[in-house]
Amino acid sequence: MAFHVERVKKVQCDACKTSIDVSTAKPLSAVACPKCSAPVIVPAKVGSMMITKLYGEGTGSIVYKAHDRVLGREVALKVMKILPTDQPGRQSGMDEARALLLVNHPNIVAVYAIDTRRGQPCIIMEPLDGGSMKERLKPEVGMDEAEVLSIGIQVCKALHETSRRGLLHLDVKPGNIMFDAAGVPKLMDFGFAAIDPDDQLNEILGTPYYVSPELVRQLPPDLRADIYSLGATLFHAVTGHAPFEAATIKALILARLNSDPPDPREYRQDLHPLTAETLMRMMQEDPDDRHMDYTEVMEDLEDALDAVKERDAAKS
């Protein structure tokens, strides 16, 4: 576990309702029910939260699924990886969470509350039971074109809303586009902009497929950096290939800095021209050659989606 938790002594098997002693079991491990052999997850307590699952972990945070026993609902608990001695980082993380508390948008993960556990900022959010876009990616096999465009439009609306409030994301990628139980895409993890520049570069080198050239160069970014990353994410989703692929991270970064993206139709010839043209414009190496704002991006994505639907209807 990434922070202090209380062990749970007993749990009940969902299958046969047997009470099981788990006082010596590792939190979030699975044990077999002694009566019916059904697997039982060993939870862990954090205040009023009963943690039941690890959603995922990144450079700046770790996210758990939990049950809020006071409110009686399922939540996601995001714990920022900030040392108590790192006061600037801690304050930045809390400021980011407070800003998102004021944002109510259907395509942004809702923040219910913020808290601190032993000096570590915690964000209590809506649950994310539909998985991530990263989990939906299939190597060399693109997702449905209309579905990708629809997701792109909704994520673009989320970025437009936060940009109006002065927030940049700076880490748009398939792993940060989550889905709720109904399949609605939700953008999460806006904390990257608060990370120290040296740590930002380390994170870039860990997931270099979607980051904009200006962020690699450590130049001051604006919303066009997020437009680039969204374009790269949609490119990967619709083609099954990252826009730039190389044998080493260094070669990948050099390709990113020195060239514009390939035409996605090189990987998938059946893509509509409007889809290909929109993605390539979003990913131009020079920010001045990209869309200037999210309104332009949404218009192009919506035009492409309408054209794809019309084409597909004509085939049926």
Results as ranks from 00 to 15, higher is better:
F179Y: 10
D180R: 08
A181K: 14
A181D: 14
G183I: 13
P185M: 12
K186T: 10
L187G: 00
M188W: 07
D189A: 03
G191R: 03
F192I: 06
F192K: 00
A193F: 08
D196M: 11
P197W: 10
D199I: 12
Q200S: 04
L201D: 00
N202P: 04
E203K: 07
E203R: 09
I204W: 02
L205M: 14
G206I: 04
G206C: 06
T207I: 04
P208W: 01
Y209F: 13
Y209C: 01
Y209D: 07
V211R: 03
S212T: 03
P213G: 02
P213W: 00
E214L: 05
E214K: 07
R217W: 10
R217D: 06
L219Q: 15
I227R: 05
I227P: 03
Y228L: 08
Y228E: 04
Y228H: 14
Y228D: 03
L230P: 06
L230Y: 11
G231F: 01
A232H: 12
T233C: 03
T233V: 08
H236G: 01
T239L: 01
T239I: 05
H241Y: 15
P243E: 01
P243V: 02
E245H: 10
A246M: 12
A247C: 08
A247H: 09
I253V: 15
L254W: 15
A255P: 06
A255T: 14
R256V: 12
R256L: 12
D260N: 15
D260M: 12
D260F: 09
P261K: 04
P264N: 07
R265G: 05
R265T: 12
E266I: 13
Y267W: 11
Y267M: 13
R268W: 09
R268A: 02
Q269H: 14
L271W: 06
L274H: 11
T275E: 05
A276S: 02
A276I: 00
L279N: 00
M282W: 08
E285C: 04
D286N: 03
D288F: 10
D288S: 12
D288I: 04
D289K: 13
R290F: 02
D293M: 00
Y294R: 00
T295S: 08
E299L: 07
D300K: 11
D300H: 14
E302Q: 15
D303S: 14
